[in-house]
Nucleic acid binder design. Structure first.
Lengths: 198, 198
DNA sequence: CACAACAGTAGAACGACGTTCTATGAACGG
DNA sequence: CCGTTCATAGAACGTCGTTCTACTGTTGTG
């Protein structure tokens, strides 16, 4: 660590940048999105609040950096299983999606919380989010190629699947799942999806 | 209007209460949730900021009152159609759900935006939200009773439907629908649901 | 080796937010 | 008619995101 000056002697401490993102993520997980203030993060990272503006331009820029990690984690979760059976792969992907959201609820809420995404670093954020979605599209293409899923526009099918699973975990995180066993209800949803797509 | 003093001579002006909720709703629709500040709403209503605390206890209490209207509107939208054909009724309900969300995006975002719902007046809010959900459960029961939907727990089935449609409109409001025709994609989702439930 | 130029820091400061405090005024019960 | 009560208005408090103002340590050049 402390790998200072990567290219030229410029940029004396990219380590500070890393420390700030780590601190922001730590505060996010520990105290929630509302507690992620510039002052709190800077203190946690052992830096002055100005550091956030020097490195990320704004608070949104810093949060974007955290969310990039979140979308990368989501993509990893969705891509984790590569069962040769297309339907099994899709189901595993759906279950991993929920596992990710429930395991990193603060991340998920910040990523999809409805409030306008940070404008600072929005393009990078969009790229990482799209990459996660593309992993799902790949699973759909795989299923269609193997004849396990009805033919159709893979993008549209993936969007439909994403809508469903996102809605389910979103409601669950918001405490709006009224059934006694949310896991079982989620499983019903997955089964309904694959049944409708076959 | 200006129906002052309902019961006893106490409560000098419930009209102020109404004016505050109206003002809050107006600011919400016009400028978004972020612009709904105590000062802005009080100014819009022609009242001092303290009025919010006298009448609603906190900013959250005021927002709760606005969201109660939102949930009532959602319930009305979902219950609007009562086509005798169960599947047609369910489809109409789903389309009305999306129409409501797209027509009142600020309301929908505040109702389901992921951020913890206001604690002030949470019980009343929950009651109105549950009433909206119950309208959907009723449609499911109706469909099962007529044999148009596979038998099962109506609550769980309704929850699955809600998850899907909520996810779809939530992503659409967030600009995360990547298909060229969101309306068509939503229609695919509805068809997939009814196909899976038959 | 000296020295101007500069990037990055710390800390105070600004406006706006939610909320609370203080004093004022108008409506009630006796 | 007066004393009490309660909603009001407006100032004030602490915190937020952000900006401003010095200052410091380093860098490239004579």
């Amino acid at each position: 660590m402390t790998d200072v000056r990567p290219g030229a002697g410029r940029t004396p401490s990219r380590a500070v940048e890393q420390a700030l993102v780590d601190a922001a993520e730590q505060v996010l997980v520990r105290d929630g999105l509302g507690a992620v203030t510039v002052r709190a993060v800077a203190t946690e990272a052992g830096v002055a609040p100005m550091g956030v503006y020097n490195r990320f331009g704004s608070k949104d820029g810093l949060i974007s950096a955290v969310l990039v990690r979140g979308f990368d984690g989501l993509r990893a979760a969705v891509s984790r299983d590569d069962d040769p059976d297309p339907v099994a792969r899709l189901l595993a992907s759906g279950r991993n999606y929920r596992r990710f959201a429930l395991g990193r609820p603060q991340h998920y809420g910040a990523m999809f919380g409805g409030r306008p995404l940070p404008t600072e670093g929005a393009e990078e954020l969009l790229a990482h989010a799209t990459a996660a979605f593309e992993a799902l599209v790949d699973h759909v293409r795989y299923g269609m190629a193997r004849g396990a899923l009805r033919e159709g526009d893979p993008l549209e099918t993936a969007q439909v699947i994403w809508s469903s699973v996102h809605g389910a975990v979103s409601l669950e995180l918001g405490g709006a799942v009224l059934t006694p066993d949310p896991a079982a209800t989620y499983e019903s949803l997955l089964q309904l999806i694959v049944a409708g797509l076959r």
